[in-house]
Amino acid sequence: MNNSSKLKRVLEGGGFAVTAECGPPRGANSDVVLKKAEMLRNNVDAVNVTDNQTAIVRMSSIAACSLLKTAGLDPVLQMVVRDRNRIALQSDILGASALGIRNVLCLSGDHHIFGNQPQAMGVFDLDSIQFVQVVRTMRDEGKILGGDDLSQPPDLFIGAAANPFADPFDFRVIRLAKKIRAGADFIQTQCIYNLDRFERWMGMAGDRGLTDKAYILGGVTPLKSPGMAKYMKNKVSGMDIPDEIIKRMEGVPKYKQREEGINICVETIRRLREVPGIKGVHIMAIEWEEVVGEIVERAGLLPRPVFD
């Protein structure tokens, strides 16, 4: 088994990459992770594993990534700076690489007030940009923060997130530029529903030459119902869902709403493929991993490339 990042090989080979998201269970059952692995196998190039998303305690991202790796998938380890200081972050980076994990996505993390441990101490010792820079220095210079040498550097393809839909809009591209300068090899964006705004943001990124410096993957999430769309629009900060999307979901009978959500998702991916500078798509089907295969197929992205 080749032990390098499949995601990296697809992107460096000029392919249009497909990644999906896998949320670990709220328990110690490995079978849940392995079941999701089977839904995603051969449909995507790499699988992001979320890190206690929405600040709800779940199986650790590193453990779930390791299970996916053993099952023959290419995991993307999501790591948030909310729960670990710089000692723990750097230590887990080394541990992840030792386990054969080859991709990391460096994030701030949802604030802990939203989750089931609102009394927790939020760490935030590093921010996500500093974290990207630390991982890059560990990998490329073999040094940790403070300059001590590593006996062996980690082997990781480094990612960061971008949200073109948060404010202030004009600053969003500056922040993207900082993440790329800090060392992000690839970027996965927040879920895209407002394609006009996304295209404006990509245009600004292209003007700054950023689309040549990192691989940008557009994020999509299939909607299950108009209620979900409204919830995301009104309750999830940094989410932009145009009214016409909600109307479209409301305009079909209830039993067809999930199908309509998938239709919108497939259309979004088809349009994203035409956006200059976009190098792939990241499908976040929240607790709905079983539809990823259908979405990828209908978007014309199968079969996925196979490497020796």
Partner: peptide
């Protein structure tokens, strides 16, 4: 809310913090 030195995070909307619309970003 996240003590970022390189902010704002992706939760900043209309000048408000993601943790609570009463909190300015």
């Amino acid at each position: 809310s996240k003590q970022l030195l390189n902010g704002p995070c992706g939760g900043s909307m209309d000048g408000r913090c993601e943790i609570n619309p009463d909190v300015k970003c």
